[in-house]
Write a protein that binds this DNA or RNA. Structure first.
Length: 252
DNA sequence: ATCTCGATAGTCT
DNA sequence: GACTATCGAGATC
């Protein structure tokens, strides 16, 4: 009943969450429309924000989908209502983040595979434990380099907190670092601090974890479809989506 | 640039 | 016991 937490001020700072109706559609449509949208995670450590640049759709009627063989404790969130997070643990060490789509009772979701870091790069770097090779072969934390504003002896001019300008936003060094930070589903979860705790969380209620519509006119709007990555079954379905020319993508 | 491989633990057969 | 919606290191071209 107490309205003291000032959600109002947060609301003014941050874009609004996508509504539940956005997610209540088939996963392929949602996967395409999530491109250029903005992933936001507010934690006690700080805020991380990224522009979604690669997605994959998974439908229950799809051998590659975790929900294909029915509901289990692990995939339960996929069968819940649309607009909630499905976070799973895989390969003994990585988490992957999905947005649940479609009707309640149906196991559809969209995997977020890559984002372009927009805010909180230093925090992302720290969470990722990112290190770089200095010239002498000595290892330094990229975060420390960034904090000092130091320029590395090598070619990598690290500016993890730099102002994002149009001219420099996609400079080769910036893209390389971005891909280290959030160029893959496991990297996103690590960089954004997403793990078991976020499984089943509502993405539509302006809570800590949410997805908002693009805040500005997207630079790229042409959508490309390709086979999904890292799966064996139904590998031919072109349900991986990226934006033509966008360098902020995962491997291969 | 592209490849192969190992790490590591939860889930399902 | 096998498999995994991954990642990073190391080898090789």
């Amino acid at each position: 009943m107490s309205a003291d937490a000032s959600p109002q001020s947060r609301h003014e700072r941050m874009p609004m969450s996508l509504p539940r109706s956005f997610y209540q559609r088939d996963p392929v449509a949602v996967a395409r429309d999530l491109l250029n949208c903005v992933l936001i995670h507010e934690t006690p450590e700080g805020v991380t924000i990224g522009r979604i640049s690669e997605t994959e759709a998974y439908a229950q009627d799809d051998p590659a989908c975790h929900a294909f063989r029915g509901r289990t404790p692990r995939n339960a969130a996929m069968f819940g209502p649309a607009g909630f997070a499905y976070v799973y643990f895989t390969y003994g060490m990585h988490f992957c983040f999905n947005a649940v789509t479609g009707e309640e009772g149906v196991g559809d979701a969209v995997l977020i595979r890559a984002v372009e870091p927009l805010h909180g790069r230093e925090l992302m770097s720290r969470r990722r434990g990112l290190t770089i090779e200095a010239k002498q072969g000595e290892k330094h934390e990229a975060e420390q380099e960034a904090g000092r504003g130091a320029v590395n002896p090598g070619e990598m001019a690290i500016d993890l907190q730099g102002v994002r300008t149009d001219a420099e936003a996609e400079a080769p060094a910036r893209v390389r670092i971005a891909r280290l930070l959030t160029g893959g589903p496991g990297k996103i979860c690590k960089a954004f601090g997403i793990d078991r705790e976020q499984n089943g969380q509502d993405l539509t209620n302006d809570g800590r974890l949410r997805i908002a519509a693009p805040t500005e006119q997207p630079r790229r709007t042409v959508i490309e479809a390709s086979p999904r990555i890292g799966i064996r079954l139904a590998a031919e379905r072109p349900w991986r989506f990226t934006l033509a020319g966008d360098p902020f993508v995962s491997r291969r």
